[in-house]
């Protein structure tokens, strides 16, 4: 058993986590998230030359384009690899550190959308920062459509090896190879069990 980097992290109660204040009148079914449409999408994101060429990907999401709260809802339930809590509860993922470009209001059609997520590891030398970053990137790649691009980074100054970790997480070839590593993939799958 490895030593835990931060034995006593600050933990937020679930009710303290940011959520969308909505004027919903219809009864809710299952998890309270607009991203149900994504997670339970009837049509998975097929690749290939015939799919999604002339379709407006954004339309499949209903009227509202994906915003920071949606991204937060997708990644905050990921479990921390060393604590029995989620990244949201541990404030590793924070709503103000999620940015989308262009913003939902300016978005048109199938244009590329860049999602920037700055993570705050629980301690400065968290050795699992890369794994957490990988889980976030993996979760987003699995759930959002192919016109989304992800920049998952360590928040400035929050982590001793920021640049190294950021560079690794931005390297699609390294990420692809890492996902073929059974040990690492097993770890990610376990972290993502608390999603959905």
């Amino acid at each position: 058993m490895r030593e835990v980097d931060n034995a006593n992290p600050a933990i937020l109660n679930v009710s303290q986590l940011p959520s969308r204040s909505r004027k919903v009148t219809t009864p809710r079914h299952g998890p309270d998230s607009k991203c149900d449409k994504i997670v339970y999408s009837k049509r998975p994101w097929l690749c290939g030359s015939s799919s999604s060429e002339d379709e407006d990907l954004e339309e499949d999401y209903g009227e509202d384009p994906v915003d920071a709260q949606d991204i937060y809802d997708l990644i905050s339930p990921i479990s921390d690899p060393e604590h029995p809590h989620t990244l949201g509860q541990l404030s590793v993922v924070q709503l103000p550190d999620i940015h989308l470009s262009p913003s939902p209001a300016e978005r048109r059609g199938n244009a590329l959308v860049t999602v920037t997520v700055d993570l705050t590891p629980t301690v400065e030398h968290c050795s699992l920062a890369t794994v957490i970053g990988l889980a976030v990137r993996y979760r987003l790649e699995q759930t959002l459509p192919p016109n989304y691009r992800f920049d998952v980074r360590m928040k400035d100054g929050s982590h001793a090896q920021d640049d190294q970790v950021n560079k690794q997480l931005g390297d699609k070839e390294r990420v692809a190879a890492a996902l073929e590593n059974d040990t690492l993939k097993g770890m990610l799958d376990k972290m993502l069990e608390t999603c959905v």
Binding site: C47, S51, S52, E53, L57, N110, L112, P145, P146, N147, K172
Partner: peptide, 8 residues
């Protein structure tokens, strides 16, 4: 632009 649709 979008030579492979929305993909890289």
């Amino acid at each position: 632009e979008g030579a492979h649709g929305p993909y890289e």
